[in-house]
Design a protein around this nucleic acid. Structure first.
Lengths: 337, 337
DNA sequence: CTGTTAGCGCTTTCAA
DNA sequence: TTGAAAGCGCTAACAG
């Protein structure tokens, strides 16, 4: 691997001159510039960004630490992050934690050692210590999708509580009373907020006595398990709210195995949808968050924090993006009652 | 940010001693080790991996340059890569090219400057120059999913040709003759191989005169467009092979808009499926490649190339993983004929 | 317009 | 068992 010195020697100039050429900085005569460029081509010289970063203290790399790239919500979000970062001149390191604090901690440690310029974090736990650890290194961090008990931090997320309220209201308007919610882990703010919105909607409609929710996981299996449990009891629901897309798919699958028709026998609705380019006839009524925009907004905020540096005293933001109810067959028509 | 020197000074030792402690290398007395560790905690010292990499010439970072994280095939593959890399002590930088040579070129250039230890590449074009460029920097590269005209390179991919053959044979066995294939871009080996397998199956069954295929894109829109085109002509097919999952979804969607029933009016089959955790009743008959394993195998191969270094003279490998036909409703029962 | 000097934070000699 | 010196490849600051 040729270094800047090799180029300099061969071109008969000082290495700083080569540096000026490759960075287009400072004055270099056309003559020298041409000569240097010729040598660069000849040698196949590639600048070593590591050395540059060691001086400049900037790596132009950010990290996205999140749960699972396999979930459409998160991979679309990841595209939003990457596209935005790319435009701003940053690279992105992706880290899947599978919602485990252990993996999150390990990743954060390595990322800080790697001197990333900033971190986008979907915390595995509402009490995650990561934010303090990151802040201690003066590294900017933006929390995505969930809030945390730590308040002094930027957050970009969808409106889980409002969305759950709308979703529940939609079912109530159709005549449902026995509405059950299968939420995610209680350690995650989206799970909790969806329960809150659901409870509020039930109470506002005088259905407080029908409130029935569970904290499980945001997974297909959790949807299957809780649905089976719901239908093994005496008081069967007429409608199920899946805490996220995977849960809803699990619910549909369990109902199918019980030979129950959706929406005729049971209505099913969901938080987050299955992207329409993956299915030819979208079926699930859902509250849809804008994952791409969440990724985009979070990245823009992170980049601005990085570039403003210490001087920026802008107070921390909690950006809550609006969600949208999309009605499809799975919630069915109005109940006769 | 405290440096190794700050720690050394405060602990009253030389920085090399601190280095030995954090790397667990060389001899350090228990006494000094304890003192150094205490100071590290006190100062919140985090080693700068950049500086270490500058000396060691290893960044423990690899890159995955591919088309689009949003495609389930690729995001599951990406999980295979990340999980495997993580276990081997490597981080992964993800780069989406959207199949454009321009973005691929830019990414490769930056990655080399970043001194990544190796690159996993899904080339946008069968004639991609990237491999030569990467090899020139003595950086190992493993090509994924597709082969390229450049032969001196490691490749890990699924058996597109054999898969397409099986898929076509399946339709022929059901009694179909007018079978049309909507493939991807001709610049991509998987597109070409799927056409080859299809052609071979048709010829082997004496259906050469019915051969009818198109090079489009691996996208929903392409599936819609070519399906519409197919059904605007006089000779309508009785079966459509989607070149990948997106194309098949597009075909299904177009057929639905034409009020044609699948599989009663038209059979539809696909290459790659929609992951079962995203849909509750899998519908598409498909040839399924093992994306996770492809990512895993490719990463293992890359890591071994990195670690063997120059000395390894193992010849380049072309690893072709077997695929599997999964029959579901969309291909229908046997035709009466 | 071009070059010299010094140093980013760490680790590999080599020496004590 | 510990440390001093030198240098990885690059660029800011200053000189000329």
């Amino acid at each position: 691997m040729p270094t800047i010195h090799d180029v300099a020697r061969k071109a008969g100039v000082a290495s700083i001159t080569v540096s000026r050429v490759i960075n287009n900085s400072g004055y270099v005569s056309e003559k020298l510039r041409a000569k240097v460029n010729a040598v660069i081509d000849e040698l196949g010289y590639v600048p070593n960004v590591l050395a540059r970063s060691l001086k400049s203290k900037r790596t132009n790399t950010i990290a996205l630490v999140f749960t699972d790239i396999t979930n459409p919500f998160f991979n679309i979000l990841a595209r939003g992050v990457e596209d935005t970062a790319y435009q701003a001149g940053y690279h992105v390191i992706f880290c899947n934690t599978d919602e485990t604090q252990d993996r999150e901690d390990k990743y954060i440690e390595i990322l800080l050692q790697k001197q990333v310029d900033g971190i986008l974090l979907v915390p595995a736990d509402i009490n995650s210590k990561s934010i303090d650890i990151i802040h201690k290194q003066n590294t900017p961090v933006v929390v995505i999708d969930r809030y945390v008990s730590h308040e002094a931090v930027d957050i970009v997320r969808g409106d889980s509580e409002g969305g759950a309220y709308q979703l529940t209201k939609h079912l109530i308007d159709l005549g449902h009373k026995r509405i059950s919610l299968i939420s995610g882990r209680e350690k995650v703010s989206t799970s909790v907020d969806r329960v809150k919105g659901y409870q509020q909607a039930m109470m506002d409609s005088g259905l407080a006595s029908y409130i029935d929710y569970f904290y499980g996981q945001f997974s297909v299996q959790s949807g299957i398990d809780f649905t089976n449990q719901l239908f093994s009891g005496a008081e069967k629901p007429t409608a199920i709210i899946g805490g996220n897309n995977f849960v809803a798919v699990g619910a549909l699958s369990a109902l199918q195995d019980m030979n129950l028709q959706v929406p005729e026998d049971v209505a099913v609705v969901s938080f987050d949808e299955i992207p329409v380019n993956l299915i030819h006839n979208p079926f699930l009524t859902a509250i849809v968050q804008p994952p791409y925009e969440i990724g985009q907004k979070a990245t823009q905020l992170l980049v601005s924090r990085i570039q403003d540096g210490e001087k920026s005293q802008t107070p921390y933001k909690d950006i809550v993006l609006p969600v949208k109810l999309i009605v499809r067959p799975s919630s069915g028509g109005k109940l006769e009652n």
